[in-house]
Amino acid sequence: MPRLEVLKTYKMYIGGQFPRTESARYYALADKKGNVIANICLGSRKDFRNAVEAARKAFGDWSGKTAYNRSQVIYRIAEMMEGRKSQFVNELVLQGLTPAKAAAEVSQAIDLIVYYAGWADKYQQIYSSVNPVASKHFNFSFPEPTGVVSIIGPETPSLLGLVDAVIPCITGGNSCIVLASETQPLGAVTFAEVLATSDLPGGVINIITGTRKELLAQYASHMDVNAIVYYGTDKAEIKAVQENATLNVKRAIIRSGIGTPGPELINDTLETKTTWHPVGY
């Protein structure tokens, strides 16, 4: 007997929930031949505002976890992703990649998560120091998470780029709101399902789908966002990000594309705190 296929509704990921956009809008995602493969939520500034609230709420708990615990949770994300590898590959193929390239991108993305899981309790040693000072103080510096980070993710590679954008950020104890690739958003939504079944608390990573054009200014201007990471090379967009970031002096990190993995990417969204502790009195 023939069976009706059950199609997946692609939704956003905010505060550990999967809401549709409050604006009730969507855009049709087509493959290369022009066939519609999915309807994607066209996220609004209010969705972003809700996501910032969720991220702010989640920040205290996540940043307060021990580094070792964060490491385990991030590793668990990789475990969950490994189990759904074929789904990620299928979606990348649907969006135009060759099967070989798609498989390579998914494997790379999973390995990258494992890589940063390892760094979670190690970057602190690299970016800490005991500083020589000319007074009777024990003076030391150590990194702390910046807070809520908004991320304009790269268009391509859509899945590896998303992982490159969010994982170093949360490894450092931040919470974030990421704008998924507009042209290849499927992987981001499935990644949200992976997050929901891992041990990551809701709200630490929030994923919005929609357009840069509409949301860029919101990502950069929201006063409760402490840093913005922008992927791209569009000069006008970079200028807009930097100008809006001055409103509350948020840190603006501009990346032209995904780079070499390393603790530097974690450090981008860290802040160094220095303590002067009196000794010898």
């Binding site: 500034r45 505002r49 910032v52 919101q218 201007s221 929201h222 006063m223 409760d224 409103l247 509350n248």
Partner: peptide, 8 residues
């Protein structure tokens, strides 16, 4: 026109 933070 900009969303606010309780910090302020």
């Amino acid at each position: 026109g900009v969303y606010q933070s309780l910090d302020y």
